[in-house]
Amino acid sequence: MVKVALVSLFLCLASLAVPLVQADIKSYEFAEPEMAQRFVDLTTVLRCPKCQNQNLADSDSIIAKDLREQVQTLINTGQTNQQITEFMVQRYGNFILYDPPLNKATLVLWLAPIGMVLIGLWALWFFGRKTHVQGAMLSPSEQQKLDQLLAENRTPGRD
Rank of each mutant, 00 (worst) to 15 (best):
N153A: 15
C12G: 09
R129D: 06
A5Y: 12
I114S: 08
S27Y: 14
L42W: 01
Y28G: 09
A36P: 00
A14D: 09
T155M: 13
G120D: 01
L11P: 01
L56F: 05
V45A: 11
G120N: 11
M137G: 09
M35K: 13
G128C: 09
K104N: 09
Q70F: 07
G78Y: 03
W125T: 04
P101E: 05
G135D: 12
C48G: 13
G120S: 08
R91G: 01
W110A: 10
F30V: 02
L121I: 00
I84C: 03
V89S: 01
G78Q: 04
R68A: 01
Q54W: 04
I63V: 12
D99V: 10
Q134A: 15
A17V: 11
Q148R: 11
L111C: 11
C12Q: 06
A151Q: 15
V71S: 12
S27K: 15
V4G: 09
G128Y: 03
L150C: 09
L42A: 06
M35T: 02
G78E: 03
M35P: 00
A23Y: 00
Q54C: 08
A31L: 02
S141P: 00
F126K: 15
L146P: 01
G120Y: 03
A14N: 03
I62L: 05
L109I: 05
V21E: 07
R154D: 04
N53V: 13
E29Q: 13
F10S: 13
A151P: 01
R91I: 05
T43E: 11
S15F: 08
F127Q: 06
Q134W: 11
A105I: 05
K130G: 06
T73R: 10
P140Q: 12
K65H: 15
D159G: 02
L150E: 12
Q54S: 07
F10Y: 14
A105P: 00
L97P: 04
D60Y: 12
L149M: 08
Y92L: 03
L6C: 01
K145M: 06
D60P: 04
K50G: 02
A112H: 01
I96L: 01
E86G: 08
Q148K: 11
V7M: 02
A136K: 08
L67Y: 09
S61D: 15
T73G: 00
K145I: 01
T44M: 01
S139V: 10
Q22R: 02
P100K: 08
N94R: 05
L16K: 14
P156E: 15
L109S: 08
L13G: 04
G93W: 04
A31M: 00
T44Y: 00
A5E: 15
K104M: 04
L6R: 00
I62H: 13
M88D: 05
D41T: 14
G157N: 06
A17Y: 02
E34I: 02
T43N: 15
I114C: 10
E32S: 07
Q144L: 14
D66K: 09
W122I: 02
F126N: 14
T77D: 15
Q72A: 15
I62S: 14
A112D: 06
A136D: 11
P19T: 06
Q82D: 08
L146T: 06
G93N: 09
A105D: 12
P156Y: 10
N94V: 03
